[in-house]
């Protein structure tokens, strides 16, 4: 089997990182950073999700075809978000004037 077995120590390291990031995101939420509150909250969430996908879900060592499928999820999600917001953010503009 070409299966890659991730050492236990990696899992513990990722676990500690995830807890630290959770603590950070909660603390940051109480400071007024203007538009950067959203950026910080979602940035940290994205970082945490990436750690889970890459290490806990073994994506780092996955075959290329599986990586393509994962990228596909992000791609279609981006289409759903961007096309929907293109509509909603421009729908109420007074185009006539």
């Amino acid at each position: 089997m070409s299966e890659h077995i991730v050492p236990k120590s990696t899992y513990y390291t990722i676990f500690v990182l995830l807890l630290v990031l959770t603590y950070t995101t909660v603390q940051v939420a109480y400071f007024d950073l203007g538009p950067f509150n959203v950026v910080a909250a979602l940035g940290i969430a994205f970082l945490k999700a990436s750690l889970v996908v890459l290490f806990f879900m073994h994506a780092k060592w996955a075959p290329k075809l599986q990586k393509l499928i994962m990228a596909g999820a992000l791609f279609w999600l981006a289409i759903m978000f961007s096309f929907t917001m293109m509509d909603y953010l421009t729908r109420f503009l007074d185009v006539a004037r």
Binding site: T25, A29, F31, L33, N37, A41, A45
Partner: peptide, 9 residues
């Protein structure tokens, strides 16, 4: 973050 955090400040 979306439901609990982003508008907490």
């Amino acid at each position: 973050p979306l439901l609990y955090l982003i508008d907490r400040h």
